[in-house]
Design a protein around this nucleic acid. Structure first.
Lengths: 332, 332
DNA sequence: TTTGAAATTGGAAGCGTTTTCAAAAAAATT
DNA sequence: AATTTTTTTGAAAACGCTTCCAATTTCAAA
């Protein structure tokens, strides 16, 4: 019934509350060996666990950081948050939320109610201005992952999406493909736009334009649903803006008896866990996911320590991973 | 600098703190229209957001529920937590932790420091006794997912793992297979044991014993690493205890030019998102993941509302999903 | 012994809320 | 106009903790 508090251990150890607090927080050098022992023992016998709500209230901060991603179910983000958690310092607490555009606002609100001191956005922010104003007003710094944003408004970590798209294009080009399709999600996020830009630029530098640009739902099923369009386009290769969709495409192609890579080359994006396990394994653009997660966390921790330093942007490079889903164009 | 508090809005609205508190918590019927309006307006102008640490301290509860899973990167658990979050009532907060056996204890500790009122374990609990004692002492109810446990010690949600294993066996049997391998993870969790039991029982009822039992790391790479053993076993079919490993196996088999299902049938377990996208698509045992997540959350909420009701166990059925990775044994 | 310094300890305020209970104001009844 | 009833409001305590600062004890030096 009765939650045991610092008062209880003070009473049991026959010392003041002050002593208990100081000692348990490793600030008790000034106390005698004996008191220290008494306190520790009382703590253990009682099984006292401090109440961080009370602590936070008093010290006026929480060491709580909120991380907002579109969904836990996307491997890319699962990797990111796992790497954050694995690398978080002992004394900081992370809270993850998978949040759609619809409830982003209320997610943010609930997070600041809970006292987060900083936020990391792994997803696009609708109404960026109001979110920014809201957060700035409360002095809650935030960081955005892979999104265009005012470089002077917050920290960012970015990967070289443009290069990514470009790498995909030159790979396909170098294999001799000229009839190339582009498959992109219905709703383009900033990073997707850059992938596309890099891809398109490199293509047009070689004087080729895509034979087809296809919109798909951002999911495996989305990719699957779109393969007949791809087939009709007469393309010999396709760049699919992320691995999830690419996996769907691969699957659909096999069902339609289109051989990959003999009759169609496919390159994805993200180098998700699953890419190398597809049949055929998926050529794709790899991002250093773990580093991205760590870096984001570290930057925001930095920010908390030094609120007034100029905002920073971390850049990560991207690389092409060649696997089985792409091959030289066969001439007939 | 200065975080704005209830006091500020009271001052601005020219009313008491009491009034503000009551009104903003929808307990302000007794106040006049006018005061209510003043308060709301002041709240809005100031952009006041209540401090839940203070609130929790005062009301002595948090509506916070901790969910501990082995890793965010396992699709099965990603699905579970997503479904929990999607179905959580407005006023409850969820905090997810991906925790290995090593830091389970400290994860739990940190969660109770943060004031969780209940816990859901999606992973095995080493030292169950001490965990149980720790939690019971603090009146923190918990629920376990798919684990053996004293039915009178906590709530549980289980799926019919035994049936799952059995279904896999009879499917393979009915296809004419008699040389069947079993691939299981290095470390068997309770639910894995049951899968195995169901599988083995059904096999032996038909008078067959596995030609080989192979241990693998619980991952795609683990499955991959183990295919040569599988091939050497001369099995014509294998039951792999989860989809992740099965995906690895599928991949390895293709590389070894073993045709699935012509030369080897494979059945997995979980019906992960990816199962249907493999080439060949994976026959597997499906669990109603979303329902499981919701049910777990609802049960623990129930428990919070009625701490003294007898513990309950929810059972979910499991079903065989036949896809391309299994086929009739070809006679030669 | 006395004194002063050093070592050790504890009282109390306050963090932002909620809630009880009494007080004040307004309205209704004599 | 006086009284009672009803409506509306606010003061203050408490939740569990940290921390400032003053109080007490111990000990060495005079």
């Amino acid at each position: 019934m009765h939650k045991i508090s610092i008062k209880d251990v003070a009473k049991k150890a026959n010392v003041s509350i002050t002593a208990v607090s100081q000692i348990l927080n490793n600030k008790g050098e000034r106390f005698s060996e004996e008191t220290i022992k008494k306190v520790l023992q009382a703590r253990d016998e009682l099984g006292y666990v401090p109440n961080s709500a009370a602590r936070n209230l008093k010290v006026r901060h929480s060491r709580l950081i909120g991380i907002i991603v579109p969904s836990f179910r996307m491997p890319f983000f699962a990797d990111i948050i796992q790497s954050m958690q694995d690398n978080a310092p002992e004394d900081v607490n992370l809270v993850f939320i998978g949040s759609t555009a619809d409830n982003l606002q209320s997610s943010i609100y609930s997070l600041v109610e809970r006292g987060v001191q900083a936020l990391i956005f792994g997803r696009p922010i609708p109404n960026r201005d109001v979110v920014n104003a809201f957060l700035k007003k409360r002095h809650i710094p935030y960081l955005v992952l892979d999104q265009n944003a005012d470089i002077n408004a917050q920290d960012m970590v970015q990967t070289n999406e443009f290069t990514g798209g470009s790498l995909a294009a030159s790979h396909l080009l170098s294999l001799g493909h000229r009839d190339i399709a582009l498959i992109l999600p219905n709703e383009l996020t900033d990073n997707m736009r850059q992938r596309r830009a890099g891809f398109l630029d490199t293509l047009s530098a070689a004087n080729v334009t895509p034979v087809s640009v296809i919109s798909s739902a951002l999911s495996k099923h989305g990719g699957l649903a779109v393969v007949h369009q791809l087939i009709q386009s007469q393309a010999t290769a396709a760049f699919v803006l992320n691995d999830e969709m690419a996996i769907g495409v691969l699957r659909g192609l096999t069902w339609q008896n289109v051989k990959v890579p003999e009759n169609m080359s496919i390159v994805g994006y993200d180098d998700t866990d699953y890419a190398e396990f597809m049949v055929p394994s998926l050529t794709t653009i790899a991002q250093p996911v773990a580093e991205i997660g760590q870096s984001a966390l570290n930057m925001i921790l930095q920010r908390l320590a030094h609120p007034n330093l100029p905002y920073q942007t971390a850049f990560f490079d991207v690389k092409l991973v060649i696997r089985e889903s792409t091959a030289k164009l066969l001439l007939d």
